[in-house]
Write a protein that binds this DNA or RNA. Structure first.
Lengths: 198, 198
DNA sequence: CTACATATTAGTACCTGGTTCTAAAATAAT
DNA sequence: ATTATTTTAGAACCAGGTACTAATATGTAG
């Protein structure tokens, strides 16, 4: 087995199991530990502990950053009780890693966030929705959601909002949302905070 | 500062930053490194490297069990093409800060993740859904989603999945999902691995 | 075949971030 | 004052390496 072949093999082994030590690699590749280490150097593969550290840090970052945003998408235009527009770009974290196709709930989340944001009420909650994922969204695509308020029933009733999401000219998602708008009174059991969101 | 207080403090520090070494802890808590280590023992906190290893393994397992970057909810039972159950607890990050009510898309995301996971196909994508948020979910509530596959059309067609989410006895969400299932051929460019870990 | 180059192996010293163990101080409780 | 608890100290050892030096094997061109 040539050096190149061995290094390719090494790469595959570590990719398949990043938790392998150099000592285990000597057994699998039948070369000395120094050779393993030279190979790692040449391939730029860090030692086991560094690999684990990077994985740990990566997952830690994701846990912190991903669910933190309350609103999915940047709202770029908003006319309360009328319409709104938001932009959201599908990034690595939002897609299936194996094929780069967006997870449905991110597409939904953008639309839902917008449908709720567009309603002028102290609290607005999605009551029900009828949605359709028209075509797949892929990694890197910019989704532009447009929401239109169709009907409003009083200051404390339901509102109907249609949301359409586009990538360029193409519609990728459409949804009909029924949103509850109301004051806080009914459900809260006291202990109100008044934390506004940025 | 008493021993108990110090240990509580230690716990908070490590929780806030799992990547802290004992040496750094001595600086923050103004006690010797031996005391730090005794405290860790008593609290059952493993050493830094072990903590990182566990985080790395955890994230790696998730990536492997479902090639998903962010599955919302822990899947606790799964019978492919039949049914599945997942649990998801609403935390601070998932609710409106001003009233502690869950954002709809997290409730949806749990159901959607489950609806997709329950389908046995190389790729499964949500095509459309009809959903209803039956009652609000509040901060701290544990949502239990149950998915039932209703119909399956061939190995490459649509599947219908019903998902019901409960908090205790109460149903909080119901959804009827139409999920596309298909083989991967079209989009993937091969590259299968089969590495087991211990 | 020889000479040089590349690849591989060997071995030692050293590093981090610990564990394990023994033992001496310091502090608190009875 | 005498135990008991808590804290600190120190040495030996470990995994899984890095960094460096040096010897040996293998190949390759002239």
């Amino acid at each position: 087995m040539s050096k190149k072949e061995r290094q390719q093999h090494l790469l595959l082994i570590i990719e398949g199991n990043p938790f392998v030590t150099d000592r285990e690699l000597t057994r699998q590749l039948k070369v000395s530990i120094q050779t393993i280490r030279l190979d790692r150097m040449e391939l730029g593969i860090p030692e086991l502990r560094e690999r684990m550290k990077q994985m740990a840090e990566h997952s830690y970052d994701q846990v912190r950053s991903l669910p933190a945003d309350e609103v999915i998408g940047d709202i770029v235009d908003l006319q309360l009780d009328k319409s709104g527009i938001s932009i959201f770009e599908m990034r690595e974290e939002h897609v299936f890693s194996r094929n780069g196709i967006a997870r449905g709930h991110y597409v939904f989340a953008q639309a839902n966030s917008l449908a709720v944001a567009v309603i002028d009420a102290e609290i607005a909650l999605t009551a029900s929705a009828d949605i359709r994922f028209v075509r797949m969204v892929r990694l890197g695509e910019k989704c532009i959601s447009k929401a239109y308020v169709r009907t409003l029933a009083g200051r404390k009733g339901k509102a109907e909002v249609d949301v359409f999401t586009y990538v360029g000219e193409e519609m990728v998602f459409q949804g009909h949302f029924i949103v509850y708008r109301s004051a806080i009174e009914e459900y809260s059991e006291g202990g109100e905070r008044s934390a506004d969101r940025h």
